[in-house]
């Protein structure tokens, strides 16, 4: 993480110095919905092969420096082991807003880089089941029973987000963010522990910290002529 901060700081310095050379003719701010997806979900494929995580998000600059944001995603987990087979799947949705702390420092309205902080409110609905359960018994011998049939649950939590987003190419953004999550309400299954809650993390925890990396594209809908320089 230290390297990321170093490179980010360097990038920031470069942007700030680079902006001094921007032509003053460009005084229009492009506004439009930005759609992105979380690349870190793909990384999980390598680390935990039985897990499929898909996520997409969108945001929109409603006021200077304030973005409304929403996310959706899906998580499927499958874990087959000797003792029992476990599978779960579910969806999540998040809604919130981000504030761009960098806005004040940008010398041109045509700059969209962000160092932001934000809040999210999130909810997930998911189901899980256990099958092919083997109970060990040294004396009577191991034997298999049916397992726990599919059970559906909900969970709700809040998130505090902080991150960086940079316009790498025209309308194409790259960014990373760190999230601190706090569980508000989590439905539990007394017969089987939840392994992962979609969009949150480990089912047994009530707080979670995660890191995301995303690629996004902004559809340039409107150009707002600006009389004053922000």
């Amino acid at each position: 993480m230290k390297n990321t901060f170093v490179y980010t700081s360097l990038l920031l310095i470069l942007l700030l110095t680079g902006s001094l050379f921007k032509a003053t003719a460009q005084q229009q701010r492009i506004r439009g919905p930005r759609f992105g997806f979380d690349v870190s979900g793909l990384v999980w494929q390598f680390v935990e092969p039985g897990q499929l995580a898909l996520s997409a998000w969108a945001d929109f600059e409603v006021m200077p420096a304030i973005y409304a944001a929403a996310e959706i995603g899906r998580l499927e987990v499958e874990r087959n082991q000797d003792l029992f087979d476990y599978s779960s799947s579910g969806y999540y949705a998040k809604i919130g807003a981000d504030y761009n702390f960098l806005q004040q420092r940008l010398t041109s309205v045509a700059e969209y880089d962000m160092i932001y902080g934000g809040l999210r409110f999130a909810g997930a609905q998911y189901s899980h089941q256990a099958s092919d359960v083997m109970i060990q018994d040294d004396f009577w011998g191991n034997y298999t029973i049916q397992g726990r049939p599919k059970y559906t649950m909900n969970a709700y939590w809040t998130e505090l987000v902080a991150g960086l987003r940079v316009e790498a190419l025209k309308n194409l953004f790259l960014g990373w963010s760190i999230r601190a999550q706090l569980m508000l309400y989590k439905q539990k299954d007394s017969q089987l522990d939840t392994r992962m809650i979609p969009g949150f993390g480990k089912g047994e925890q009530n707080t979670s910290l995660s890191f995301t990396y995303s690629i996004s594209y902004r559809i340039p809908l409107t150009r707002m002529p600006s009389s004053s320089n922000k």
Binding site: M1, Y7, V39, L174
Partner: peptide
């Protein structure tokens, strides 16, 4: 930055 962050996630 991309590569570093990717490795950080990993």
């Amino acid at each position: 930055n991309i590569v570093t962050a990717f490795l950080a996630i990993l």
